[in-house]
C-alpha cells in the first residue's frame, strides 16, 4: 500500500466526521462566529442607514459611550436589575425545590405548579404583569388600597419601574431555576442522608453539610445561566416600560435594540454589543475561576 493511500485510509474517520459536523459548523459560522467578528468590526465605524461601515473611527464609539450619561445610566440599570433578580430568583427557587423534593403524596402536582412559569412566554407574562401593575385597576394598587396605603405608579414612577420589572422577571425565571435545582436535588445519593440520620443530624445540619455542598455544581450552573440571562433581558422591557420612564429601565439589550433598529446607529449599537459580550465573558470566566475552588463535584 502506498503512503498516501495509508494516510487517506487512516483519515477516513475524520472525513466522515466532518460530514456529520458540517451542518453545525456552517450554521455556527454564519450565525455566530461571522456576526461576532462583524459586530466587533462595526464597533470601530460609523455606519450608514443600511449598516455598512462608512467611516473608521477607532475607539471613538467606545469613548463616546463611556462618556455618555445615557449609556452610564443603562449600565447602572442593568447592574441593579441583575442584583435585584438573580439572588432572589435562586433563593426562592431553591426554597421551592427543597419543599418539592420531600416525598409526599401529590408532590407531582406542586412540582408542576412551581415549574409552570417556564411554560409561559415572556410576552404573555409581561402582559399579565402589565395588568397587575395597572395603577387604577391592577391588583397591586387595589391591595394597597385595601390596606390603606398610598398608591404606587408601579411602572410609571422612575423610582419604582426597575423594581417592578425585576419582580415580574423573578416570577418568570423561577420555573426554569426550580426545575434545574430539583433535578440537582434528586441526583443526590439517598445513602448520604441515611448515614447522616444514623449519626443523628438534624434537618438544617443536613441541609448545610450535605444538601448544599452536593448541590453546589447545580447551583453553580444555575447562577451562571441566571446571570447571563439577566444581562440578556429584553421582552419584558419592551412590553412593560419601553426602557422608560426617563430611561430608568433601559437595560443594555434594549439599549442596543433601540440604538440599532430605531435610531439606526449601528456603530454605537455594535460597540454596546461588544461591551455586552465582554461582560458576559468576564462573568463566565469569573464564575469558572470561583467555581473551580468552591464546587464539590461528585
Amino acid at each position: 500500500m502506498t503512503r498516501i493511500g495509508r494516510v487517506w485510509r487512516k483519515s477516513v474517520d475524520g472525513r466522515t466526521a466532518a460530514l456529520y459536523l458540517l451542518p453545525s459548523i456552517i450554521l455556527f459560522s454564519v450565525f455566530v462566529f461571522y456576526p461576532m467578528f462583524r459586530t466587533i468590526y462595526l464597533s470601530f465605524f460609523l455606519t450608514d442607514q443600511t449598516g455598512n461601515a462608512a467611516i473608521m473611527v477607532g475607539f471613538e464609539n467606545f469613548v463616546y459611550l463611556l462618556g455618555s450619561s445615557e449609556f452610564q445610566n443603562s449600565m447602572k440599570a442593568t447592574g441593579l436589575f441583575v442584583l435585584y433578580t438573580v439572588p432572589i430568583t435562586i433563593i426562592l427557587a431553591l426554597f421551592f425545590a427543597l419543599l418539592a423534593n420531600e416525598k409526599l403524596k401529590g408532590i407531582g402536582f406542586f412540582r408542576t405548579m412551581y415549574s409552570s412559569t417556564m411554560g409561559i412566554s415572556v410576552a404573555a407574562s409581561s402582559v399579565i404583569w402589565l395588568f397587575m401593575f395597572n395603577p387604577s385597576i391592577g391588583m397591586f394598587n387595589r391591595l394597597l388600597g385595601v390596606l390603606n396605603l398610598p398608591q404606587i405608579q408601579w411602572l410609571l414612577d422612575p423610582e419604582w419601574a426597575l423594581l417592578s420589572v425585576s419582580i415580574s422577571t423573578i416570577w418568570m425565571n423561577i420555573g426554569f431555576s426550580f426545575l434545574i435545582l430539583l433535578g440537582g436535588l434528586q441526583n443526590i445519593d439517598e445513602h448520604l442522608y441515611e448515614s447522616s440520620r444514623i449519626d443523628g443530624a438534624g434537618y438544617f445540619y443536613r441541609l448545610r453539610r450535605i444538601t448544599l455542598p452536593m448541590l453546589s455544581p447545580t447551583l453553580f450552573f444555575i447562577i451562571t445561566i441566571s446571570l447571563i440571562n439577566a444581562f440578556q433581558t429584553f421582552g419584558q422591557i419592551d412590553i412593560l416600560t419601553k426602557g422608560g420612564p426617563s430611561q430608568s429601565t433601559n437595560l443594555i439589550v434594549y439599549s442596543i435594540y433601540r440604538e440599532a433598529f430605531i435610531n439606526y446607529q449601528f456603530g454605537t449599537a455594535s460597540a454596546q454589543a461588544v461591551i455586552l459580550f465582554l461582560i458576559i465573558l468576564i462573568v463566565t470566566i469569573l464564575q469558572f475561576k470561583l467555581g473551580e475552588r468552591k464546587v464539590h463535584y461528585q
Partner: peptide
C-alpha cells in the same frame, strides 16, 4: 478543538450578534 469551539458559542450572547444577523 472543534468541541471547544462549539462550547464557546454558549458564551456568545445571541443579542450581541443580532445586528449582523439581521443584515444577513
Amino acid at each position: 478543538f472543534i468541541f471547544f469551539l462549539f462550547i464557546s458559542t454558549m458564551m456568545i450572547p445571541w443579542e450581541a450578534t443580532m445586528i449582523p444577523n439581521v443584515f444577513t
